[in-house]
């Protein structure tokens, strides 16, 4: 039997309230290397808040976010800000729904990929350039566009560039917020293919937040359904989508248009 893959992320009873609105209530789950966890739910169900708590952007009111480092496990919200800022950028990447939030549009595509590498201490232009080229190729952007500004790229290309930037530092954990949102269906399909390939190739752990059941089915190994800040159902993706138990999940699945 294959030994179980290493646990990369464990969330324990995480809660976050905005004023009187509970955005996340006692959410717990764990994620292993090479695994893709989908979080589905309608707008306002707390998916994005949860993701931001994992990415170190929003401090949860309660609960722990445990992330594996090289030799031990750290609670990112128990660390001081300086150590967290040191630890997270090399460990976890956040891919935004809108590539404009995750890219610098006024610097070249190559510069965008090189920036996190330079932040992590890369000080050799030649190797930064080589890494940028290698990643552009991986995300199907032609190498000669390396010095072009992402401003002139199409939406799909910008999103692929954002993914290259997010993955170039070899994070253990990738957090995606609606990675295919705002793209047309054929571009979405290509992007999903690319993401699936990369996840398998690199063996990273991924949390993908989406309201698109199709994306969840294609990408995720396991699924968590959220409603009003609570996890109401979870399990293997096929299980949850083919045999939904909770009435809300049933509604969600039956709302998808069949073509």
């Amino acid at each position: 039997m294959k030994p179980r893959a290493r646990e990369i992320l464990r969330v324990e009873r995480l809660s976050k309230t905005f004023g009187r609105v509970p955005a996340c209530s006692t959410v717990s789950f764990s994620l292993r290397q090479g695994e893709v966890l989908g979080i589905v739910g309608e707008s306002g169900s707390g998916k994005s808040t949860l993701l931001r708590c994992l990415a170190g952007r929003i401090q949860p009111d309660e609960g722990k976010v445990l992330v594996a480092s090289d030799d031990h496990v750290v609670d990112i919200w128990a660390m001081d800000e300086a150590s967290r800022e040191q630890f997270l950028p090399t460990t976890a990447s956040l891919i935004h729904q809108n590539p404009r939030d995750g890219l610098r549009l006024d610097i070249s595509a190559g510069g965008n990929i090189a920036e996190p590498l330079m932040a992590a201490g890369g000080r050799h232009y030649g190797s930064l350039r080589a890494t940028a080229l290698e990643w552009l190729e991986k995300v199907d952007i032609e190498g000669w566009r390396i010095d072009d500004l992402p401003e002139i790229f199409s939406g799909g290309m910008q999103q692929r560039l954002q993914i290259a930037r997010g993955l170039a530092t070899h994070p253990r954990l990738v957090l995606m917020d609606e990675p295919t949102g705002g793209l047309d269906v054929s571009v979405q399909a290509k992007l999903l293919d690319l993401l699936r390939g990369l996840v398998r190739e690199l063996g990273i752990a991924v949390v993908v937040v989406t309201h698109d059941i199709g994306v969840a089915r294609l990408l995720a190994d396991r699924l968590m359904v959220m409603q009003r800040g609570r996890v109401i159902e979870e399990g293997l993706t096929d299980q949850v989508l083919d045999d939904p138990h909770h009435p809300y999940t049933q509604l969600l699945v039956s709302s998808v248009l069949q073509v």
Binding site: A82, E85, Q86, G110, G111, A114, E115, M118, A119, D147
Partner: peptide, 22 residues
């Protein structure tokens, strides 16, 4: 100020990178 506090000066190298590539 946070960038100074955490000494994360990667962004400054972007300028150098852009100059060399262009």
């Amino acid at each position: 100020r946070k960038i100074h506090a955490f000494a994360r000066y990667g962004v400054m190298y972007v300028r150098l990178y852009e100059d060399i590539s262009r």
